[in-house]
Design a protein around this nucleic acid. Structure first.
Lengths: 224, 224, 224, 224
DNA sequence: TATGAATGAGGTTTCATTCAT
DNA sequence: AATGAATGAAACCTCATTCAT
């Protein structure tokens, strides 16, 4: 599915050298982990250290930290979008398809990354805005289909879902091999999914956020 | 209602001067707001500014930022504990009592504050450990009572609840007076509560965290 | 004459503490020297070192390096303006008054500081723009008066003068106590002054820069 | 016209390959422009970009930035020297010959480049020292001849001239096609030349720098 | 030989904390 | 006891220089 994603290239359009390409991909991978572990405040130096590269190399690929974070966000959303599309194509409306998508998105677990710079307005680049819109639209399609099938409660929308998923802490264990607490997030998700089944018992206070609220939300950068 | 809470005192046990006492309470209040608004990265200078005090005054009361955060946590937990105790005394087992407690805890909304220094081990002071234990114990009592009454799903425990509540983002609107997105958190909570009703449909993967996991979790300071 | 200059104060208008006030003045003084010696590229750390202060102290008084440079420029221009006004009041038109002003301005010798960030547009703050305009106007008055008296060549204007003075290197000796080369700048100035006497022999190519050219010049920050 | 200049060769004396030779010349040309435009702080990457070469190629020809700058200085001085020699051969002593030389040197306008690393001692290579001496000697010859002819003031010497010419800002316009301010430098030069005519009116303070002062000046690298 | 990717020291800036007033 | 000025470590980012391709 990634074959359609063009490889990252420098501004002038020429393809990167093989090793540089590899480095870029490693940086993205490592940075995603680092930010998921330490939060956005993690230093670039830490990313450099974990990837065995110099800081300068990171800055060669990304003009600044914000852009790096944005690239990760875009990357994650692309993967999520692909997943949603697959679900829509395969079995739209089924509870199984819905939960698979949701679990996948949680699994990407860079979610926690996205309370990026709370309180400070961050300009989102056009590419991020675009993929975000696409993802929300596709997800809303899935939500609607699942609601029509009568298995998802009617009073939530795609944005509610995104908000909830983003709130699930990515990874709990203190020590990497601690399996006991590793899947607390999974328990959380289970409860949440039950709460999402139709029909809901609790009455949700508001009619649900519309596009305007969503845009406003993203504009002031709690995340995504 | 706080008559049971002992007045804050300096280390050597003498009671504070009246104005100092007032300052301390104001700092706690303001800092709670500031951290909820700006996140833990908010500067002490900002707390000083908003409280109209000098930074020195803050440091007179709290040896460092971490301690200040801890005091807030303790303060929040004390209030939560009081609420839980009240619920236990009044009508243990009722769904209404349970939801009231839960809504109150979310309302304190300094929750988000507590992924304090993710990844870095933070020593919790004995007072925090004590109140945390007390709160978890009382909450577990409430959970058990509510489960016995058959209205709360059986496969969750107090720690699951705390984890979930802590994950709900405190306040969403971009602009202070924006009511449209203000209560997304409330929608989130509604869904969550529905998911917590008995009986759950989703099977939760693990037996639920025990005291050992809980301690381990807190020791590495994702929060609280 | 400086009694009219208000003391630098923090944003909220309260006067600075005595020691802070002293520090601020010392920073301005030292920074002026440092930039004159090393150019604009001199590091803030160097300014801190020479003034025996921490870097943070500098940043407490000036939000960033550009602002510090601008403050110095303003300061220098204020002093120059005072000098020009004095000359205008005392004996407008006399060659002696004119040269005194010129020598004074060269003596301030932060001139060299002002090819600040060549090629990069730097926004000048309103205060700088204001004093710059005032200075140029007053200087033009002096130029005109001196020209009317028939001792200054007719085909130059205030901006020409400023440009020339700014070009004189501030201080030549390598070693502080080297008096031999110390006053090469003075020789330069002497030649320049002779070139400025009426009537000029060389025909100057252009009609002389107007306000439009001047503004354009400053906008693209060769200096001042 | 450069037939007297030996072709640049690598350290071991072999002649360069044709393309390498071309590259070297292009680098010198481009670098001279770049430094004149952006100042010494211009990055090597910028030189590489403008010349369409890789940074590595530049470093193949010049071990470091300082050497590149030095080569430019040498190059400029060679051209100036040729000009001076021509003037001496054709019509020594005439004001026209003198001004032609002066205008030519200003026209090379890499002058501004040469306050290279102010305050920092820069070792000048032997080749630079040699050409500098040659140039100063030839220029002094011209100065003396012109003074003997009675048209150049007696109290200046070649070094004064160099210092003055080096101080004229190379190019003023903000935008490349702005002709209005383009020739302010020319006005400056006109005034300067008038100041240099015999006899001077202003008395120049010092006897004029001797060889010792000159060497000292250059040793501490204000320039050239 | 030419390229441009990688490096890392050094500069600017922020902020928790200390301490003179 | 309160204040806020000073400190300096640590973050971000740039760029001269090296080196694998």
């Amino acid at each position: 599915m990634n074959s359609s994603t063009p490889p990252p290239t420098p501004a002038d359009g020429r393809p990167l050298r093989a090793d540089a390409r590899q480095n870029l991909e490693q940086i993205l991978q490592v940075a995603q982990d680092v930010f998921a572990d330490l939060g956005y405040k993690a230093s670039i130096a830490e990313v450099a250290r974990r990837s065995g590269l110099g800081m300068g190399t990171i800055y060669r690929h990304f003009p600044n930290k914000a852009v790096l974070v944005e690239r990760i966000a875009i990357h994650v959303m692309q993967e999520s979008l692909a997943q949603v599309r697959r679900a829509l194509a395969a079995e739209p409306g089924s509870w199984g398809a819905f939960t698979r998508v949701v679990r996948h998105m949680v699994g990407l677990r860079s979610s926690q990354l996205f309370p990026v710079s709370r309180g400070r307005a961050t300009e989102s680049g056009p590419e991020l805005v675009a993929i975000r819109t696409e993802l929300l639209d596709a997800l809303q399609e899935l939500v609607t289909a699942t609601q029509r099938a009568g298995v998802l409660r009617d009073d939530v929308n795609a944005f509610d879902i995104v908000l909830m998923l983003n709130s699930i802490p990515p990874r709990l264990p203190a020590e990497p091999d601690d399996t006991a607490t590793a899947d607390l997030a999974d328990r959380f998700l289970g409860v949440l999914l039950d709460g999402l089944r139709a029909p809901g018992a609790e009455e949700l206070s508001l009619p649900g956020p519309g596009r305007r609220e969503i845009d406003q939300f993203f504009r002031t950068a709690h995340g995504l």
